[in-house]
Design a binder for these strands. Structure first.
Lengths: 208, 208
DNA sequence: CAGTGTGAAGCACTTCACAGCC
DNA sequence: GGCTGTGAAGTGCTTCACACTG
């Protein structure tokens, strides 16, 4: 199968969200044009995106909401649940662990790690902060699928390597560093400083 | 001036970070190749990126660390400070407000808003949660430059419109919705559900 | 006839390759 | 000789436009 662009996958998620909302409002079909409006793209783009994976629509009619919902869930790997471990029990890690919406859908936080003795053992929602030294022994028994890395920049690379060795399949990285990981580990980064600096650039350059 | 791609701006931020680190280690020049290694790109890309804004390097030598640092700060609009208001004092908003690194560099949190009477008046670090109803009157006196929107999905669009009307220049949106804003307001979105679903897709499709 | 599916065209970002300068 | 700056070529995503079908 041809490689799918990351931008395409992002849009599929957005379509899915709108489909779920539409389903809640009792709609049974949706056109590429309606999907496009709510996803901030064009109808041609919607059709192209979906056509990578098959023919889901009916000509003259549009897409069946329940059918396309199921198909997109299948495509995005959301027909199953994923377990998530939060690595780093700082302010943001703690907030993410408790945030509904982050844990919702098919992603379930199953553990929170930290190296700080002052934090280890502390309760966070239904969890207790575990010693990151136990990562390897924990993982031998039961490992989460995805790690959310919320540690300081200078310990992120080490932590990532241990996660990769311990068999984690994916890392969502919040540390402001370019992680070096073996190719079998999927990595995405969210870098808030970068986003703010992007806004700073726009405000500086594009303002009339 | 020709339009600059968002991906280019992202990389400039990454270069700047490495320049600052290198400066701390006493390096005085850096080649496009060294910059590329640490930014995860190619030397040609680095040179192209920089050439949009001028000629900063010396042939045969590379780039002067202090000079390029200054130039990039200037380009990215980081030669000045920016004030930031956090809108939404939930778990994540509160965490961001207190996170060092987020507030660091040239971005300073100056206010935190919420609509929940239970939260209004609560101290968060050096700040006190303010009633979002006061946004307009506050803004008439002194308005922050950038708003960080950390409210539930169903109130995000309303909040964004009020921020735009109140004269905010930019919004960093964490709510999982496609914000509709007037074009003079710069918007960037960070959507954690989308990132997780992107990983889910990779784990499902690309695994051998 | 409304709306999908899709080759072809268009556009934008990246990589190449080399002339030019230090 | 080393490394930048940059047109030209390459690649990949997006938009167009239209044949096709329910």
């Amino acid at each position: 199968m041809k490689r799918i662009a990351e931008s395409t996958v992002r849009r599929l998620s957005v379509y899915l969200r709108y489909l779920e909302e539409s389903s809640g409002r009792g709609l049974s079909t949706l056109s590429s044009d309606e999907l496009a409006k709510h996803a901030g793209t064009t109808s041609a783009q919607v059709r192209k995106d979906l056509s990578f994976f098959g023919s889901f629509g009916k000509r003259g009619l549009g897409y069946s909401v329940p059918e396309l919902t199921d198909s997109l869930r299948e495509i995005l790997g959301l027909a199953r649940d994923w377990s998530v471990a939060i690595v780093g029990a700082g302010k943001i890690g703690t907030a993410l662990a408790q945030d509904r919406g982050f844990g919702s859908r098919r992603f379930h936080v199953v553990a929170i790690y930290d190296v700080d003795p002052a934090k280890i053992g502390k309760p966070i929602g239904p969890h207790t902060v575990r010693d990151f030294a136990r990562l390897e022994s924990d993982s031998a028994r039961a490992r989460a699928d995805i790690a959310v890395l919320v540690v300081p920049a200078d310990s992120a690379q080490d932590a990532a390597e241990r996660l990769a060795k311990a068999g984690y399949l994916a890392i969502l990285n919040f540390a402001p560093v370019q992680l070096q990981c073996p190719p079998e580990v999927a990595v995405r980064s969210v870098n808030l400083a970068l986003e703010l600096e992007g806004l700073s650039f726009e405000l500086t350059s594009r303002r009339r």
